[in-house]
């Protein structure tokens, strides 16, 4: 029991530590005194600009995107009763980035900046709705994953089509950057535009977490316990759609984060899907922010994209979990 109780405070502390390190580390590391000075407004103008306009928004962005993806992953896994469910694997992020790219391509974002998160969220909701609808019709986990692969492939195909028709190399490079996923050069305004949607999605997922515990028994037994299945599905679909869509609108497509964090958290929360939502979100936030810090300080010629690094770590984890699934589950 003490393990459960300590996990969340430790992760909350880790989040703040990561945010602090995110301000300290970069191409030019800054000392603790300069960070505190910059954060409190007592440091030099240069430090304040670096912290408030570059490093803090970037780190905050990585933390929020990680949290949104971690919570969505944990909730989708609970709903679909499957440890391999994750917004990236199930095609939710790809579908969302397609919608986002579409809105940029056709100049919707020029009309209003809010168009980007709206389109991303609608894209994510389309994918989560198809998945939830499939989950009602089939008990087969394989079918569900295949539908996710289908959504992902179809979205990727449309994405290629958009790239194929890109009017100029700049538009093309914009789209590729989008698909690779990154939190570089994000401003506080970008964060503030997406954060409310992420937090709303997160709140919905958190409030309906107890239904996920009931779903451990299977859908029929869960409704026998008194769970309103239709409402549970709707809430998880909308919550995960909002959180994932908003994260795509700010960071592009970053996959596999939502699969690693819940997998690591589960043994510490007695495998209860309800108890895994919050720690999964926090751990994914720390994971993504740390990965982003490493990217910044890595001496590579071209800065690596966060989505690429996340997939390089996450995809092997996905394969490992898939292979060991039969053994660890009842």
């Amino acid at each position: 029991m003490t393990k459960d109780n300590l996990l969340t405070p430790i992760l909350v502390f880790a989040i703040f530590l990561t945010l602090f390190c995110g301000c300290m580390l970069g191409s030019t590391p800054m000392g603790v005194d300069r960070i505190i000075g910059g954060l409190t407004g007592n440091g030099s103008i240069g430090d304040q600009i670096v912290i408030w306009q570059i490093r803090l928004p970037r780190t905050l962005c990585a933390v929020l995107v990680g949290m949104a993806l971690g919570a969505s992953g944990a909730a989708l896994q609970g709903l679909l009763r499957n440890p391999l469910a994750e917004p990236g694997v199930l095609g939710v992020t790809t579908c969302s980035s397609l919608a986002a790219t579409f809105s940029i391509y056709y100049g919707m974002t020029a009309i209003s900046p809010i168009a980007l998160p709206i389109f991303s969220i609608v894209g994510a909701l389309i994918a989560t709705s198809i998945l939830a609808f499939t989950a009602i019709r089939t008990q087969s986990v394989v079918t569900l994953i295949l539908v996710g692969v289908g959504i992902s492939s179809l979205s990727a195909a449309f994405m290629s089509l958009l790239m194929n028709m890109a009017p100029n190399p700049f538009a093309l490079s914009d789209m590729i950057n989008w698909m690779l996923g990154s939190v570089a050069n994000r401003s506080m305004d970008d964060v503030l535009l997406s954060a409310p949607f992420m937090l709303l999605g997160f709140a919905i997922l958190f409030l309906t977490r107890h239904g996920l515990s009931a779903l451990t028994l299977g859908e029929e037994a869960a409704s026998g316990l008194g769970l309103n299945l239709a409402r549970q599905r709707l809430f998880v679909v909308v919550g995960a759609g909002l959180a994932t869509g908003a994260s795509v609108s700010i960071a592009g497509a970053i996959g596999f984060v939502g699969i690693v964090a819940p997998h690591l958290v589960r043994p510490f929360v007695q495998y209860d899907p309800a108890r895994s939502i919050l720690p999964s979100a926090l751990l994914a936030g720390v994971f993504l922010a740390v990965a982003d810090i490493l990217i910044r300080i890595a001496p590579t010629q071209n800065e690596l994209k966060l989505g690429v690094v996340a997939a390089l770590i996450g995809a092997p984890a996905f394969i490992w979990i898939a292979i060991h699934r039969g053994r660890t589950n009842d």
Binding site: L217, A221, L225
Partner: peptide, 24 residues
């Protein structure tokens, strides 16, 4: 309602499974 036994999605503790009886 106790439907035909199905595989559990997660290996919960026995006491947590019994506690789910209070879900309603």
């Amino acid at each position: 309602y106790l439907p035909q036994m199905q595989q559990l999605a997660w290996p919960l503790l026995v006491k947590d499974i019994v506690a789910l009886g209070r879900f309603a």
